[in-house]
Design a protein around this nucleic acid. Sequence first.
DNA 1: CGCGAGCTTGACGTTGTTCAACTAGAGTGG
DNA 2: CCACTCTAGTTGAACAACGTCAAGCTCGCG
Lengths: 229, 229
Amino acid sequence: MAKVSKPESCLSCPYKWKYLNLLEDKDINSIQRSCTIINFKKGETICKQGTDATHALYLAKGMVKLYIEGKKNLILKLIKSGEYIDLQTLFGDKTYKYSVAAMEDTMVCMINSEILQDLAKQNSDYLFELTKTISDSGNYVYKKISDISRKQLRGRLADSLLYLRNEIFNSDEFDMGMTRKELAELSSMSMENAVRILSEFKKDKIISLEGKRIKILQIDILKKLSDIG
Amino acid sequence: MAKVSKPESCLSCPYKWKYLNLLEDKDINSIQRSCTIINFKKGETICKQGTDATHALYLAKGMVKLYIEGKKNLILKLIKSGEYIDLQTLFGDKTYKYSVAAMEDTMVCMINSEILQDLAKQNSDYLFELTKTISDSGNYVYKKISDISRKQLRGRLADSLLYLRNEIFNSDEFDMGMTRKELAELSSMSMENAVRILSEFKKDKIISLEGKRIKILQIDILKKLSDIG
DNA sequence: CGCGAGCTTGACGTTGTTCAACTAGAGTGG
DNA sequence: CCACTCTAGTTGAACAACGTCAAGCTCGCG
């Protein structure tokens, strides 16, 4: 199970909370006192759809997937270190609408939800930044829903590859860090079709592919595929 | 085109802004001074996907649809009077990710975006409520995306009917106030299939149907259809 | 009366899922 | 070191789901 510890200092922490600089010293101390650091191993569940949120989660180190569970899972997004994992559930309805699991060894800071909310109420600049973040996360889902509901397989897989390139790895070449099944869940299709279309892209020299290592060779074609859907 | 006017008083307005009571008098005056009331006729576009948001929009009277445009439209939700139309675009990225159009004659209050933001920063209780609203709107889209991406036609149409019943009209019998095409866009399917499944539901005595007037006869079956997808 | 928009239904083709069989590689225990 | 097993990946073929096309229908309105 996950390893638990306490932070020595939040201010000097290399994985410092985003927007922490907007808070006053006493508030930072208050975060520090109630903060718990938890380490998750690859595959472990960080929060579970249907349960209630009691803590704010900050992803200090690692990478997680946020997904909706069901007969088939749907991965909504990946979250990299330096981001809050869930703010929506903190401020809105308290029940998690999704699950979050570690895609690699991951370090999460947790602080009591009420403490963070009180603190946000007293520091409207901080709250304002959190609100911005929540808003943009909503905007992202709007884009995702329109992509998923309207594009066909090729367009959706192109979307996923461009997402990995532009938002997650910032490089034309990367180890995608997930199985074909997960790539399929990110693209809302069956695993078999994800495999098939990856092979197709490889055959057409749009990407090169060895195991989980992907290199994007013709990004303009991917963009076109994403555009035409 | 839309008719424009100024409010006489925001405090005594029967369509008073939500959470206005959390603001101080001087702030309410400031809203009142910069507020413009616009009346839209059925079918008119209130905001257009791709343009930039300059105003906060509050739906004082009427009903609007919020939808993503493309080769086929996708209606994400309907908004009733007494709700803010878009807060996400106000606090996050300024470009509208969707369009909004009036489904009936509608009255909208607009105030300058910067004024509302300044005001929210100075009244963290107000900002807090807005943040809650934005969060829940995000949570709604999470549900919507999982419904759309996983359920089949019958499940999705059942979802739409339950949505209209539970969230919009609060009654087993209602005039759905939209065309078959729009119902299809709400359910992410072709218009022909929406028609077909409506007829099927009628034949199976799950609903009664005369024109746009729908009466839900067996809600438990609808729920079941929604559950099994 | 004629026209157009919305609605309805059937037939057909396309898209995508499911099932099944097979391969390659990693890990395990004798 | 080899057989065994387990998981991830791959490919083909059958089938189901869904969209598109086409034809006709109804109703309100000029």
